[in-house]
Computed example of a mutant assay.
Amino acid sequence: MDETYEPHILVVDDARDIREPLGTYLKKHGHRVSLAGDATAARQAMATNAIDLVVLDIMMPGEDGLSLCRWLSSTDGPPVILLTAMADDADRIVGLELGADDYVVKPFNPRELLARIRAILRRVPPSREPVPPGRRAFAGFVHDPAAGMVTTPDGREVLLTTAENRLLVAFLDRPGQVLSRDQLLDLTQGREAKPYDRAIDNHISRLRRKLEPDAKRATIIATEWGGGYRLAADVETLS
C-alpha cells in the first residue's frame, strides 16, 4: 500500500448514535469513511465509491445486515465486519457462513474494532478501482485499459497517463452517473480532496483534450455544475 492511500470504510448502522461517532473515530485514525443508515444507502455508496471494508450492523429495518452480507459475498465485495448483539450467537454463525470476515459484539470498544479493521486490511490489501481486462466503445472511441490508450473515431491511437486511464475506467463503469470530485479521487487515487485540491479538474482537462474536438465545450465528459462530472455517452463492451 502506498503512503498516500487512505483505506475507505463504509459504516452501515441504522443507529445514528453509533455510526456517526464511529465514523468520526475512524477518520481520526487515518481512514476515509462513508456512513449509511440502511442497506439501500449502503448499496448506493458502494456504487460510487471504492470501498475497502464494510462495518455492518446485522439488525436493521428493511433489508437486514445478513442479506446485505450475502449480496456482498456473492458479488466479490469488500471484507465485512459484522456488528452483533450479545445474544445473537446464531446470527454471528450465519454471518460467518455467508462470508463475513469477522464480528464485534455490541457494545464494543472502538479501539478493538479499529484493530480488527487493520488486521483484515493487512490480509486483504485495499484495492483501487480495478481496471477491467476488456475493451469498451463509447462516442466512437475504443478504450483499451490494459494498453492505457484510446483509439479515436478516425483510427488514431492516443496514449493515456495512468491517472487518465483510471479516470476513464471510472466513467465507463458508471455511464450517466454524476461523480463528484471526492468520488473520482476515491475511485482513482484512494484519497480525499484536500483544500483547494484541483487534481481531478486537471486530469479531466487533459483527458478532454484527448477526447473532445473542443475541450472547452465538452460533450463526452459533461460538467454538472455544483455536482461534478458525468460521462454523457453510451458504453458498449467489446468481445
Rank of each mutant, 00 (worst) to 15 (best):
T4A: 05
T4Y: 05
Y5W: 07
H8S: 00
V12P: 03
D13G: 02
D17R: 01
P21W: 04
G23C: 01
K27P: 01
K28Q: 15
H29W: 06
G30Y: 01
R32L: 12
V33P: 00
V33W: 07
A39R: 00
T40F: 04
Q44H: 10
Q44P: 00
A45Q: 00
A50C: 12
D52L: 05
D52F: 06
V54I: 13
M59F: 08
M60A: 09
S67I: 03
L68I: 11
T75Y: 09
T75S: 00
G77H: 09
P78G: 12
V80Y: 07
T84S: 11
D88H: 01
D89L: 12
A90Y: 15
G95I: 03
L96Y: 14
E97M: 01
E97K: 08
A100E: 08
D101R: 05
D102W: 05
V104D: 06
P107Q: 09
A115P: 02
R116A: 04
R118C: 01
A119N: 07
R123M: 14
P126H: 05
R128M: 11
P133M: 12
R135N: 07
F141N: 01
H143K: 03
D144A: 10
A146Q: 12
A147L: 14
M149G: 00
V150P: 09
T151D: 07
T152R: 13
G155S: 08
E157T: 13
L159W: 15
T162D: 07
E164W: 13
R166D: 09
L167P: 01
V169Q: 03
A170K: 04
D173S: 12
R174D: 01
G176I: 06
Q189W: 06
G190H: 01
R191K: 08
R191P: 13
R191G: 10
A193G: 15
A193S: 15
Y196T: 14
Y196D: 15
A199G: 05
A199R: 08
D201P: 08
N202L: 10
H203M: 05
S205P: 03
S205H: 13
S205A: 14
R209V: 08
K210M: 13
L211E: 12
P213G: 11
A215Y: 13
A222E: 15
A222P: 07
T223G: 06
G226A: 14
G227E: 15
G227A: 15
A232F: 08
E236L: 12
T237D: 15
S239V: 11
